[in-house]
Amino acid sequence: MPQILLEVTAKFKFLKVVEIPKFQNENIVAQQGLFTSHIPALKSESGTPQTLPAFKNNDRFPYLDEYLSDSAGDDLHQKLLDKLKGKPLCFTLKYNEIAPIRRKLDQLNITWASMMPNLEGATKEAIRRSAMKNYIDF
């Protein structure tokens, strides 16, 4: 997710990057990720009730990619979205797309072992590779 998109969104909508200690947390360091919250408190610091965001014509709470991609009428945010390549997307893969994408991730060294550099990650990766030997691509 582009850092600039997080920063611009945080200027006009509730979005908080949640800092967690990286010391002695191999997974967080290896994944080079961050945690965000786009769920505001039910009441502001002054005690005024706040409205939780809902996704467009729906009562459900928006996913982060929807929230970041909705300019809500803010011109600066819309200009950034228009220029930005690699907008955040949440999507569901079809079963037959898993193997080709898995191979690409392997080529980029994005594996259980690289994302979780400990015994658990190595074990999960060994099990995955063993299972893939029997898998036939269609």
Rank of each mutant, 00 (worst) to 15 (best):
F91N: 10
F61I: 09
L64G: 00
L84Y: 01
E97F: 05
P53A: 04
K56L: 10
L84I: 10
L76D: 14
P100H: 06
N96Y: 13
T51E: 10
K85S: 10
D65S: 13
T51C: 03
E66W: 06
L84W: 00
P88R: 06
S46R: 09
P88L: 04
T92N: 14
R102I: 04
F55I: 03
Y63G: 02
K43Y: 10
A72N: 11
A72Y: 03
L68T: 01
L52P: 01
G73K: 04
G47R: 06
D59W: 08
C90E: 15
I98Y: 15
K79N: 15
G47N: 07
Q50S: 09
K43M: 05
L80H: 03
T48I: 09
S46Q: 11
K43G: 02
D82M: 04
A72Q: 11
P53C: 03
L84M: 11
L84D: 04
L42I: 07
N96D: 14
D75F: 08
L68N: 01
K85E: 15
S46V: 06
L93E: 08
K79I: 07
G86H: 10
P100G: 08
D74L: 00
L76V: 15
E66T: 03
K87T: 11
T48Y: 09
L80T: 02
T92I: 14
T92K: 15
K79C: 11
L76S: 15
K87L: 12
L76A: 15
S69R: 11
N57R: 07
F55K: 09
